[in-house]
């Protein structure tokens, strides 16, 4: 009896779960927005199929009991404990991909660079710009306003932390970290790992570990909630 109910209703329950994730803005934590329509359409289609299943009184008596119950257990755990954006645990794992440039994923245009229109630059845009510019010195003292989360590990010198975010192409599996070092100060002293921050400051080129690196010097810093869409698309 339980087996039949679980297996018959696992599809509509999972479809409702996907729609729930979308309505709660949690889909942004899992997949790239370009896949939202495809995913939600599939969930709605599955609900239509499910309604036919119920109307026609189709019963799945053949599948293993574990399958329907696994779907249900997964949904219950997620509903109880909630979902959060990827954080320092994944960043630590994916440090080998830190600031790796993928040209197709920068929103900045040549015009913006040419006109020095840096106002709307994200962490990923700056990272792309650093990789293509021949003259890093030109952005010395450049004002920036950036959002990201606090990250530090044993490879980052004590006087800095890294303002970080993830860039995604498809889903959380392929998220790659980007980040810029920030000079620690009294303003940042009360914040720690995974705290989301909005920083206003200016860029400075420093010789760190025998190479030129960009550092943000903070003018203003405030704690913020993780954005609705925490990843850079």
């Amino acid at each position: 009896m339980i087996k039949r109910i679980l297996n018959t209703y696992s599809l509509p329950v999972f479809s409702i779960f996907v729609i729930y994730l979308w309505r709660m803005n949690d889909l942004n934590l899992l997949i790239h927005p370009r896949y939202h329509l495809f995913t939600i359409s599939s969930a709605i289609f599955s609900l239509i199929v499910s309604s036919i299943v119920i109307y026609k009184r189709v019963k799945d008596n053949q599948s293993e009991i574990t399958n329907g119950s696994l779907v249900l257990v997964t949904i219950i755990i997620v509903l109880i404990s909630g979902l959060s954006p990827l954080s320092s645990a994944v960043l630590g794992q994916r440090n080998d991909q830190l600031n790796v440039v993928i040209n197709s994923q920068s929103d900045i245009s040549n015009n913006q660079i040419f006109e020095n229109n840096f106002d709307s630059f994200s962490l990923a845009d700056w990272n792309y710009y650093f990789s293509i510019t021949n003259n890093l010195e030109s952005i010395n003292n450049q004002k920036v306003i950036l959002e990201g989360f606090f990250y530090e590990d044993e490879f980052i010198l004590d006087e800095y932390f890294q303002l970080s975010r993830f860039v995604i192409s498809c889903c959380a599996v392929d998220a790659r970290p980007v980040g810029i070092l920030v000079q620690k100060s009294e303003l940042s002293s009360e914040y720690g790992l995974d705290d989301w921050l909005k920083i206003e400051g200016w860029l400075e080129i420093r010789d760190i570990d025998s190479r030129d690196q960009v550092v943000i010097i903070v003018d203003e810093l405030k704690s913020i909630n993780a954005p609705d869409n925490p990843y850079i698309e």
Partner: peptide, 15 residues
């Protein structure tokens, strides 16, 4: 993060 990746894989594969 484990939970986010786990559900991410499922939701991405669902359609």
């Amino acid at each position: 993060d484990f939970k986010t990746i786990f559900v991410g894989i499922i939701v991405e594969s669902f359609p």
